[in-house]
Structures are given as C-alpha cells and as structure tokens.
C-alpha cells in the first residue's frame, strides 16, 4: 500500500458518510429554502422574517443564550477548578456532575416541569411552608419572568456538564510548573486563575463555548416542555413551519438563518479566544 495514499483511503469512508448524510441533505435544505418551484427566490426568507413572531423568537433565543451561557461558563470553570484540586474521589464527582448529560433535553424539560407546574414540587413546598394559600400557576402568560427563569435553570442544569468535561480536560493539560512559577513570583490564587489558567485554557474555552453557543441557538425541547407557545424560539418556529403549517420552504429558510447565526457566533468566539502563533503550551 502506498504510504502517501493510505491516510486518504482511511478517511474515505467517513468522508463519504458525511457527504451522503450531511452535505447532501444540507444542499437539499438550501435548495428548498431558495426555490419556490419555478427558480431562485428569497420569498421564503421574506416570509419568515416578516412574520410577527420572528423578532420575538429571535430576541428570546438570543436572550436565553445570553443569560444561560455566561452562567454555565462560570459554573463550569468553578466546578472544573474544584475537581482539579481534588486528590480523591475526583472521578466519582465528575460522573455525578455529568449525569444530566445522559438525559434527553425533552426529559430534562419534563423534570423541571414537574417542579414548576401547578401541582409541582415548588407549589407543594411553598404551601407546606405556608408561603402561599393555594397553588400558583408559575408557567403562565402572567409570569413571563418565571417562565424564562425556569427554562434558563433547566438549561443550566442540563448542559453545563458538556462544558465542564471539556474544561476539566483542558485544565489538566496545563503544566503544574506554571502555577508554581506564578506562585513564587507573587501571584495570589485569584491572580493565578486570571493570569495563568484562563489564558492557557483558551483552546478549551473555544471548543466549549462554540459547542455550547451552537446548542443554545438550537434550544427547542426544554422550551416546548416549560414554555409551550408562551416563549417562542427560533427552533420552535422552524418546527411549527414544518409540521403545523406544512411549509417546508419556510422551515428550510429558518434552519438556514439559525445556521448563519451559529456560524457568525462561532467565528466571533474563535477570533476572540485566538491564541497567537508561538504562544501555545
């Protein structure tokens, strides 16, 4: 076997797989979005963007990402730092913390619904403590703030661990000597975190943030379970176009808009956390 050809031959199956099941459907979606049966058109985009729910769902999606991702980042950093300092039981704690990852997003939404709904745990607890006389309907149009909070909490609970595992691996790659040198040269624990851990963690932060931000723009099931139609988001609208309104051209256009937003934010994150050449570990 020719050694120069071998790598290409080895990646051929996966390339074919991706072309067949990713690139091809993607092209079909793109074709659907830009085609009305008689040729190229932007009608689908004009339709979805012009619809009154579009600005609301765009705003909701962005707000949710803006509220959830920073909290998750901070939590994941805190948890990763704690796990890294542990001498014993580190693996056990990691497993426990990553359990929510194994639960589907719809199931996670239902778990939090069981907490917040009218006959849920939160109402039982509050009435048990005498804080309320009768059960409250938290997840109603009268409490948009609580709906938002419940969705954000469920998302934080569900998806922080994906950042955590990436950051734990990243922190593990930073040589101990850098911390010792920083300590000797006068950096307090807080300064060591800001001046050593964070900058040297940039490659892992990139990966974790890109992954998490993309997932945040695709939020759907948790919102469907907790907010229903009270809290429209982009992915929910896409679903509605496809399955309720049977308008697959519009659904395809929505999908492409979400893709464009994801790509835009990915580029921003990659650029902001860029590590200059020669400055890698």
């Amino acid at each position: 076997m020719n050694a120069r050809l071998l790598p290409y031959i080895l990646i051929l199956p996966v390339t074919l797989f991706l072309c067949l099941f990713f690139l091809y459907p993607f092209l079909l979606v793109a074709k659907q979005a830009f085609n009305n049966g008689s040729g190229f058109t932007l009608e689908n985009f004009q339709e979805v963007v012009g619809y009154w729910k579009f600005p609301i769902s765009l705003k909701n999606t962005l707000l949710l990402a803006a509220a959830v991702v920073p909290v998750q980042l901070a939590l994941a950093l805190l948890m990763a730092t704690m796990v890294n300092k542990m001498q014993k039981g580190r693996d056990l704690i990691l497993y426990v913390w990553t359990i929510p990852l194994g639960i589907s997003d719809l199931a996670a939404g239902i778990i939090w619904l069981a907490i917040f709904e009218q006959s849920g745990f939160l109402n039982s607890m509050m009435s048990g403590l005498g804080m309320i006389d009768r059960p409250m309907n938290f997840l109603s149009y009268q409490h948009p703030g609580i709906v938002f909070l419940a969705i954000a909490l469920a998302e934080i609970w569900r998806a922080t661990a994906i950042m955590l595992v990436i950051l734990v691996a990243g922190i593990g790659l930073i040589p101990k000597e850098y911390y010792e040198a920083a300590e000797v040269f006068g950096a307090s624990p807080w300064k060591r975190f800001w001046r050593i851990t964070l900058p040297l963690l940039r490659p892992s932060l990139q990966t974790a943030l890109v992954l998490r931000v993309i997932l945040a723009f695709e939020i759907f099931a948790v919102v469907a379970a907790l907010g229903g139609t009270l809290f429209p988001v982009l992915m929910g609208e896409t679903y509605a176009y496809q399955f309720d309104l049977l308008n697959s051209g519009a659904a395809a256009a929505m999908a492409l808009i979400i893709l464009a937003i994801s790509i835009g934010f990915t580029l921003i994150i990659l650029r902001a956390l860029r590590v200059p050449k020669g400055a890698q570990i």
Binding site: E180, A181, E183, V184, G186, P199, A279
Partner: peptide, 29 residues
C-alpha cells in the same frame, strides 16, 4: 506563602509562560 518569602526561582523546565511575551515573562513578578 512563596510570594512573601523574598525569593525568586529558576525552574528545571524553565516554566516560561507560553501566553506572555518575553517582556511580560520577565516583568511578571
């Protein structure tokens, strides 16, 4: 703690911070 001992140290693997320039490395302390 080390920073209050009036010492400086040279490490076996140098521990020159990769994310800082030479200037900022020397000026770190």
């Amino acid at each position: 703690p080390p920073r209050e001992r009036g010492i400086a140290m040279v490490f076996q693997n140098y521990a020159v911070f990769p994310h800082l320039t030479v200037f900022e490395n020397i000026g770190f302390g």
